[in-house]
């Protein structure tokens, strides 16, 4: 199916998909796994943060000027005013700073800290290993994926959406080379076989919303299904 679209159309589609998910993340409608990818991506991408700010500005404009107010309870203001002094006193000492997240010698976005404990890689294919990430999601699955240098991902397509955030190293496929901070979002139209960088291999955060299925003769072997 990927041959039906030209390279240009493919990139355009990926860009639209990317902007859509940025907006959905800013609006707060993505699930936990997808939000995790976007939050980690935003840590590594000033461009993404600028886009998010624009969408949040839109949300604020809508909230402030285009959301018909519904009266608060009569005592609501008084109730809140009464708590103001106490609130200030309570949170004066709560200065928490972001905890750095190190994993396998790689410095990762701090939002991943609560999701990664000790390395516990499972080999799923020669030269490829995953570490599952627990979330509350029913439809989305999150995992770290480690690919050894020069290894080519088996031919696979996927139903639903697949988000891949590069964390370390690089990989390349028909549409280009990707490295730390890059986020690739593809849907079921896109069949791709990324190759990990020949020197460094790569580590990425992958979230899928439906089981990946293998196409081609390797269909018999489907390590991504869990």
């Amino acid at each position: 199916m990927s041959t039906d679209l030209t390279q240009h159309e493919m990139k355009d589609k990926m860009q639209t998909q990317y902007e859509t998910m940025l907006m959905e993340y800013a609006a707060g409608v993505l699930d936990e796994a997808q939000s995790l990818v976007m939050g980690a991506h935003a840590s590594l991408s000033p461009y993404a943060r600028r886009m998010l700010k624009k969408y949040e500005c839109l949300g604020g404009a809508m909230l402030s000027a285009h959301c018909e107010p519904i009266s608060m309870k009569k005592d609501a203001l008084d109730c809140v005013m009464a708590q103001l002094d106490q609130k200030r006193a309570e949170t004066k000492d709560e200065q928490t700073s972001a905890q750095p997240c190190h994993f396998e010698g790689v410095s990762l976005p701090s939002c991943l800290k609560d999701y990664l404990d000790q390395p516990s890689w499972q080999n799923i294919y020669p030269g490829m290993a995953i570490q599952n990430i627990e979330t509350s999601c029913l439809k989305s699955k999150a995992r770290l994926l480690k690919v050894d240098p020069g290894v080519k991902t088996p031919e696979h397509s996927h139903r639903g959406v697949e988000m891949t955030l590069m964390l370390d190293g690089a990989f390349h496929d028909e549409s280009g080379t990707y490295s730390r901070g890059d986020l690739i979002i593809v849907d079921e139209d896109y069949t791709h076989q990324p190759i990990a960088d020949e020197r460094t291999g790569c580590i990425c955060l992958v979230v899928t919303t439906a089981p990946i299925k293998l196409t081609g003769w390797k269909r018999l072997f489907n390590p991504f299904l869990k």
């Binding site: 939050g39 000033p46 972001a98 701090s110 509350s136």
Partner: peptide, 19 residues
């Protein structure tokens, strides 16, 4: 019922604004 995963401005891994 979830905590929104988000970037943190003081994260040492944060890539600083380039523009």
């Amino acid at each position: 019922r979830m905590k929104r995963p988000d970037y943190e401005p003081e994260d040492p891994a944060l890539v600083a604004d380039d523009m």
